[in-house]
Measured scan of single mutants.
Amino acid sequence: NITNLCPFDEVFNATRFASVYAWNRKRISNCVADYSVLYNFAPFFAFKCYGVSPTKLNDLCFTNVYADSFVIRGNEVSQIAPGQTGNIADYNYKLPDDFTGCVIAWNSNKLDSKVGGNYNYLYRLFRKSNLKPFERDISTEIYQAGNKPCNGVAGFNCYFPLRSYGFRPTYGVGHQPYRVVVLSFELLHAPATVCGPKKST
């Protein structure tokens, strides 16, 4: 009989979020998941679920829940969905086509923008091939755009693969920082350890 609540607040209220190319993952297990707390949290810009209804989450049990978190621009949030393409979905964070879970995003301009620009948040701009679902690539190898080998030196046709967002408070909404948490639900042939409040007695 599990009684402790799942530590969703640790994920959602973290002081610093990860850059999207180096997205953070927390495994959540052996706890009671009260999703209504999240669902009623006012400032969400997006709360979209795939393969599961957000209002039914509290009735369900899962083997594991993974909480992935990172920061992207407002106009990139739409790429955090199954079957998407674009710089983020291709080179930074890719969801599987059969994704079961929820994508939760909110504007973090007050936290993550600075006058003069916040350059701490990076994304991958160049990559030889697209990421596989949930693949994480933190390499900083110089990207070779031409035929000539770069030998690890940036220059003509040789690019550092990461780019900084440089968030400023005055940017338009599409270019403002958004914090994103992706909850993915794993249902294995194993005992369920993460259940909603109704199922955990």
Rank of each mutant, 00 (worst) to 15 (best):
F45A: 01
N147G: 09
I138H: 13
N109W: 00
K198L: 04
N24G: 02
S53N: 15
R16D: 01
Y178T: 06
N87F: 06
I142S: 07
K26T: 14
K132C: 06
K199Y: 05
R163T: 14
N75K: 01
T55D: 03
P169D: 00
N40M: 13
V153Y: 11
D97G: 05
N64P: 05
R168K: 04
G166W: 02
F126G: 15
T193D: 03
P191T: 15
E186H: 11
N40K: 01
G74A: 05
I2H: 07
Y121C: 00
G166F: 04
L5Y: 04
N4E: 07
I142E: 05
T201V: 14
G74Q: 04
D90R: 10
V65C: 07
V115R: 00
H189I: 14
N147D: 13
P7Q: 07
A67I: 03
N75I: 02
T55L: 08
A192E: 10
F44P: 05
R163A: 12
N120R: 03
L122R: 15
L188E: 12
G196M: 07
T170N: 02
S184W: 12
E186K: 14
T3D: 03
A192L: 11
L125W: 08
N151R: 02
T100K: 05
Y119N: 07
A33P: 13
S139N: 08
I2Y: 07
K132I: 15
Y119R: 10
A42L: 08
K132H: 10
Y39D: 13
F156M: 14
D9T: 02
N109H: 14
S200K: 14
F160I: 14
V180I: 00
S36R: 02
T15Q: 10
P161A: 06
R27N: 11
G196K: 12
N64A: 15
K198H: 03
G196W: 04
S36M: 08
N4I: 03
N64K: 02
F126P: 01
L111E: 10
E141N: 09
K198M: 04
V194E: 14
T201W: 11
Y178L: 03
P191V: 06
K198V: 09
T100R: 08
V77L: 12
G196A: 15
A33C: 03
A145S: 15
K132A: 10
P191E: 06
V71T: 00
Q84V: 10
Y143L: 06
S164Q: 07
I142T: 06
P7R: 02
Y171T: 08
F45C: 11
Y35W: 12
P197H: 11
R163H: 03
N24H: 07
L187I: 10
G116M: 00
S184A: 06
G174A: 06
K110A: 11
L38I: 14
F134Q: 06
T55G: 02
P169G: 00
P197L: 14
T85V: 08
S19H: 00
S29G: 02
F160K: 15
N120H: 07
F8L: 05
A81G: 00
L187Q: 08
P149I: 14
T85C: 06
N40D: 07
R16A: 06
N147Y: 08
G152H: 15
Y66M: 00
V153C: 14
K132R: 14
T100S: 14
Y50W: 02
S29C: 02
S164K: 08
A18G: 08
F44M: 06
G166S: 12
K110Y: 12
Y35G: 11
V52C: 05
G152I: 02
P54Q: 10
G117L: 00
G117S: 03
T15K: 05
N130L: 06
A22G: 07
I72L: 07
T170W: 00
D9L: 08
Q144G: 12
V194Y: 03
N151L: 10
K114E: 00
P43Y: 05
Y91W: 10
P43G: 13
T55F: 14
G174V: 05
V37K: 12
K148M: 09
A22H: 07
G174T: 09
V194T: 10
T140L: 11
G174Y: 10
Y35V: 14
K110F: 10
N118A: 14
I142W: 02
S164E: 06
V194W: 12
P197E: 02
F156C: 10
T63G: 02
N151W: 05
G155C: 15
G174L: 08
H175A: 05
F44G: 12
P7M: 12
G196P: 15
S19D: 01
A145G: 06
R163K: 01
N75D: 07
T201G: 10
P169A: 01
Y39T: 15
S184F: 05
